[in-house]
Protein backbone atom coordinates (compact mmCIF):
# COMPACT_ATOMS: atom_id res chain seq x y z
CA UNK A 1 0.00 0.00 0.00
CA UNK A 2 2.71 2.47 0.96
CA UNK A 3 4.72 1.47 -2.14
CA UNK A 4 1.73 2.18 -4.38
CA UNK A 5 1.23 5.54 -2.67
CA UNK A 6 4.86 6.60 -2.90
CA UNK A 7 5.72 5.04 -6.24
CA UNK A 8 2.53 4.89 -8.30
CA UNK A 9 2.97 2.82 -11.41
CA UNK A 10 0.72 0.24 -12.96
CA UNK A 11 -0.91 -0.08 -9.58
CA UNK A 12 -1.69 2.96 -7.49
CA UNK A 13 -3.29 3.65 -4.15
CA UNK A 14 -6.77 4.87 -4.95
CA UNK A 15 -8.26 7.05 -2.22
CA UNK A 16 -11.94 7.83 -2.41
CA UNK A 17 -13.72 10.46 -0.33
CA UNK A 18 -17.33 10.06 0.85
CA UNK A 19 -19.30 8.78 -2.12
CA UNK A 20 -22.82 7.94 -3.15
CA UNK A 21 -23.52 4.36 -4.09
CA UNK A 22 -26.35 4.31 -6.58
CA UNK A 23 -27.34 0.66 -6.08
CA UNK A 24 -27.97 1.00 -2.36
CA UNK A 25 -28.68 4.76 -2.35
CA UNK A 26 -26.31 5.11 0.56
CA UNK A 27 -23.40 7.37 1.41
CA UNK A 28 -20.14 5.47 1.83
CA UNK A 29 -17.33 6.45 4.17
CA UNK A 30 -13.91 7.16 2.62
CA UNK A 31 -12.15 4.11 1.24
CA UNK A 32 -8.81 3.20 -0.23
CA UNK A 33 -7.50 0.33 -2.25
CA UNK A 34 -4.68 -0.72 -4.48
CA UNK A 35 -5.78 -0.80 -8.11
CA UNK A 36 -7.77 -3.97 -8.67
CA UNK A 37 -8.26 -4.79 -4.99
CA UNK A 38 -11.55 -4.35 -3.16
CA UNK A 39 -11.86 -1.06 -1.26
CA UNK A 40 -11.39 -0.95 2.50
CA UNK A 41 -12.72 1.64 4.92
CA UNK A 42 -9.86 4.02 5.75
CA UNK A 43 -11.20 4.65 9.26
CA UNK A 44 -11.06 0.97 10.17
CA UNK A 45 -7.89 0.17 8.23
CA UNK A 46 -5.71 2.80 9.89
CA UNK A 47 -6.59 1.41 13.32
CA UNK A 48 -5.85 -2.15 12.16
CA UNK A 49 -2.54 -1.07 10.59
CA UNK A 50 -1.38 0.54 13.85
CA UNK A 51 -2.13 -2.69 15.71
CA UNK A 52 -0.37 -4.73 13.03
CA UNK A 53 2.79 -2.60 13.12
CA UNK A 54 2.86 -2.72 16.91
CA UNK A 55 2.51 -6.52 16.86
CA UNK A 56 5.18 -6.71 14.17
CA UNK A 57 7.71 -4.55 16.02
CA UNK A 58 7.10 -6.32 19.31
CA UNK A 59 7.53 -9.64 17.52
CA UNK A 60 10.82 -8.48 16.03
CA UNK A 61 12.15 -7.41 19.43
CA UNK A 62 11.14 -10.73 20.99
CA UNK A 63 12.57 -12.87 18.19
CA UNK A 64 15.82 -10.92 17.82
CA UNK A 65 16.43 -10.94 21.57
CA UNK A 66 15.59 -14.62 21.83
CA UNK A 67 18.15 -15.52 19.17
CA UNK A 68 21.01 -13.38 20.43
CA UNK A 69 21.30 -14.34 24.09
CA UNK A 70 24.36 -16.21 25.31
CA UNK A 71 26.04 -17.79 28.34
CA UNK A 72 22.84 -19.36 29.67
CA UNK A 73 19.85 -21.01 28.07
CA UNK A 74 17.03 -18.50 28.34
CA UNK A 75 13.37 -19.14 27.90
CA UNK A 76 10.74 -16.66 26.85
CA UNK A 77 7.83 -16.32 29.22
CA UNK A 78 4.65 -14.35 28.82
CA UNK A 79 3.59 -11.93 31.52
CA UNK A 80 -0.01 -12.97 32.18
CA UNK A 81 -1.74 -10.68 32.63
CA UNK A 82 0.54 -7.76 31.75
CA UNK A 83 0.65 -5.09 34.45
CA UNK A 84 -1.66 -2.20 33.58
CA UNK A 85 0.91 0.36 34.73
CA UNK A 86 3.51 -1.09 32.33
CA UNK A 87 2.04 -3.69 29.95
CA UNK A 88 5.27 -5.37 28.85
CA UNK A 89 4.13 -8.77 27.61
CA UNK A 90 7.28 -10.90 27.56
CA UNK A 91 10.26 -11.70 29.75
CA UNK A 92 13.49 -13.62 29.28
CA UNK A 93 14.35 -15.95 32.14
CA UNK A 94 17.18 -18.37 32.65
CA UNK A 95 15.77 -21.81 31.95
CA UNK A 96 14.72 -23.05 35.40
CA UNK A 97 15.51 -26.65 34.46
CA UNK A 98 19.25 -25.91 34.61
CA UNK A 99 18.87 -24.24 37.98
CA UNK A 100 17.27 -27.35 39.45
CA UNK A 101 19.94 -29.59 37.97
CA UNK A 102 17.61 -31.30 35.50
CA UNK A 103 19.33 -30.09 32.35
Amino acid sequence: MRNCFEHPGEKTLEIRDFYWEAETRKTHLPTWNITGDPPGAIAKDVVAIVEFILDFVEGLIVLCAGMQTEHFPYILTRNEPPKTEMPIRYALRIDPSILSGKA
Binding site: E58, A65, T69, P87, I88, R89, Y90
Partner: peptide
Protein backbone atom coordinates in the same frame (compact mmCIF):
# COMPACT_ATOMS: atom_id res chain seq x y z
CA UNK B 1 5.53 -0.65 26.78
CA UNK B 2 5.64 -3.04 23.85
CA UNK B 3 8.51 -1.28 22.08
CA UNK B 4 11.00 0.72 24.16
CA UNK B 5 10.20 -0.78 27.54
CA UNK B 6 10.10 -4.33 26.19
CA UNK B 7 13.52 -3.88 24.59
CA UNK B 8 14.88 -2.26 27.74
CA UNK B 9 13.56 -5.11 29.89
CA UNK B 10 15.17 -7.77 27.69
CA UNK B 11 18.51 -5.97 27.66
CA UNK B 12 18.46 -5.92 31.46
CA UNK B 13 17.20 -9.48 31.91
CA UNK B 14 19.63 -11.42 29.76
CA UNK B 15 23.21 -11.62 28.57
CA UNK B 16 23.64 -10.95 24.88
Amino acid sequence: ARTVLQANAFLKEATF
